[in-house]
């Protein structure tokens, strides 16, 4: 790297410092601190003491608030492990479904003529022209008990089915919203696989299955890794999909964080601690997917 190119990176480094590193540091600080009530002597007054003093009408003297270091927020998030597990589980299912649907789609698109490829890509992107919230809201009216799908099924004597407010609906919302993020990186890597490579594999005696498993799949791994990350990360931290399609009873980790910041339970310290755990999970996921294409991922991968 020359001196000049280093200089060119300065704007991004400033951006990185202000909008990534400082907020990250703040989250860590919030996660490991809490505000406590102390009296004049500096003794910490617990919530139970405050409650009982209030009930008995006792005045505890001059009380002030202080920020202290604590591990309580981190241990408190343990209680929400079932939510965490559910988020990981649903995001995982959604990611696998996206891969299963997206992989053949991306492969087929990459084998079309150039003008057709453009057209198909536009079709993949088309739903994203509409606002994310509206798209999810539309699924609500489709899936409802008196919604369009149940009305249609009712015409042929089926149903009504309970579709809205289930985990299935949440996964559907994730797959629908994040599928383009799987198809696009896969497509961009697959267009680079030359047809002549496939022909060579055939000439050397590979049947179509072997061509796929020994040529196409290994060459597309960087795209798979990118696609998985780009679907899994937003899916695990979503909150609006689970609120609209899950009815608030299928709470995800994103809802829990939202609840601590903008929702009812205003507790930024706990919210920051949950975010920290979420970040660790995402870090793990990205490390694993990066390891997936570790051998020779020179070029290609978007991330």
């Amino acid at each position: 790297m020359t001196r000049k190119s280093r200089f060119l990176a300065a704007p991004y480094l400033v951006w990185l410092a202000i909008f990534t590193i400082i907020p990250l540091a703040l989250i860590v600080v919030f996660a490991f601190t809490t505000t406590v009530t102390v009296d004049e002597t500096g003794r910490i007054i617990t919530a139970e003491e405050l409650l009982s003093a209030e009930a008995d009408g006792v005045v505890l003297g001059e009380l002030t608030e202080k920020t202290v270091f604590t591990l309580d927020n981190i241990t408190a998030t343990s209680a929400y492990m079932p939510v965490m597990v559910r988020s990981i589980w649903l995001a995982l299912i959604a990611t696998v479904l996206c891969l299963v649907i997206g992989y053949p789609t991306a492969y087929l698109i990459s084998r079309l003529t150039f003008s057709r490829q453009k057209m198909m890509l536009m079709l993949v992107m088309l739903p994203m022209w509409m606002n994310f919230l509206l798209r999810t809201y539309a699924w609500m009216t489709l899936l409802e008990r008196n919604g369009w799908i149940n009305k249609l099924l009712g015409l042929i004597g089926l149903g009504p089915f309970e579709m809205i407010n289930t985990q299935g609906a949440v996964v559907l919302g994730m797959v629908y919203n994040y599928l383009p993020f799987m198809i696009l990186p896969l497509y961009s890597i697959m267009t680079k696989i030359d047809n002549s490579v496939l022909e060579a594999a055939g000439d050397l005696g590979c049947n179509p299955i072997k061509t796929f498993s020994r040529v196409v799949w290994p060459l597309s791994l960087p795209g798979v890794a990118t696609g998985i990350t780009m679907v899994f990360v937003p899916a695990i931290s979503t909150f609006i999909i689970s609120r609209m399609l899950g009815g608030g009873t299928n709470m995800l980790i994103g809802d829990l964080i939202d609840l601590q910041f903008l929702g009812n339970a205003y507790n930024p310290n706990l919210g920051a601690a949950i975010s920290l755990v979420l970040m660790a999970v995402i870090l793990l996921c990205m490390s694993i997917t990066n390891a997936l294409d570790n051998e020779d991922m020179e070029g290609g991968a978007l991330l």
Partner: peptide, 17 residues
Amino acid sequence: TEILSEVGASPWMTPVV
């Protein structure tokens, strides 16, 4: 928060994870 999200697990779960 407890009502909306089922609660369980020991307090050491998160640090370990």
